[in-house]
Write a protein that binds this DNA or RNA. Structure first.
Lengths: 151, 151
DNA sequence: TTTTCATGTAACTTTATTAGTTACATTCAT
DNA sequence: ATGAATGTAACTAATAAAGTTACATGAAAA
């Protein structure tokens, strides 16, 4: 992974966990899937564990599991569980805020960012982990020699 | 300036131009106000010039001017004039996209980001440069020894 | 027309953030 | 006990953004 968001990374990991519910997956295995590093996986999933989305177990046959059905996990839940924001930061240095104009800009932008966060959260609420997982294997291709019925 | 957005920087500069409509302001003067560097000012205002928001003149008494009334300049106009996005980038490496899950995540996130950009733009449309300028000098303080008339 | 003051811009350096890495303590099943 | 996993601190590397330097260009004024 060169540069994407931690949210994307988390989603990728969660889809893997969702697709293999029967056994725990190790950070190392996930890291291979995500083309990244086990420590990065632990850092990201660690935040999701604190939110009760996943669980980790140490020792033999340890690893990560999904704790809830994918249909019940919205992207908003995941997003909220992680510290990060999808919006860039716009606050000025404390020093610069001696200028009245800087404070005015910061105020207006701050209100905007707060509104924007709410809008983004509402939009993320409408997508579940399951939505992504189903898209990953689009339609179990309608086979020609198949189980579809005519008439 | 340590770390804020280019949009904030642009707004700050534009408020200064708005407050001094009678003469052009040089990049160097603006840089002092913005606690930054003349070249950075030129880079940012250069984009706004291409959008017809400001004009620059070279040579003696040269500098920057606002071309339109502040009430007619929405934050969306300014935002659109600048290349930047307020949302962080979420696309994965081309290499990672061989994985179907990565593609699914990218697709969903891409749709989300597109929607989000539209939401942000609509929200920015509702704020004008003048709104910020007026907030910067809240109410011309009613002076005690003053020019206000009684009864 | 020469001087001066401004922008325009390329190239480089610095700084901040993020990911990646290494190392090792901890925990748990065997 | 041993082996396999997480937890985490500390460090390194890569990236992006701002800052800086240098100089060409253009316009007004002396």
């Amino acid at each position: 992974m060169k540069r994407s968001s931690r949210l994307s990374l988390a989603l990728h990991a969660l889809v893997h966990l969702h697709k293999q519910p029967d056994q725990a997956i190790t950070s190392t295995t996930l890291a291979t899937c995500l083309m990244t590093n086990p420590v990065v996986v632990r850092r990201v999933l660690g935040e999701l564990r604190e939110a009760g989305i996943v669980a980790s177990t140490k020792g033999h046959d340890g690893g990560w599991r999904l704790l809830r059905p994918a249909t019940d996990i919205s992207l908003r839940t995941i997003y909220s569980a992680m510290g990060e924001s999808l919006l860039i930061r716009t606050e000025s240095d404390p020093g610069d805020r001696q200028c009245g104009i800087v404070r005015a800009v910061d105020t207006v932008m701050g209100e905007f960012i707060a509104d924007a966060e709410a809008l983004l959260a509402a939009r993320l609420e409408r997508v579940s982990l399951d939505d992504i997982a189903r898209q990953a294997v689009p339609h179990p291709l309608p086979s020609h020699s198949g189980d579809h019925h005519h008439g």
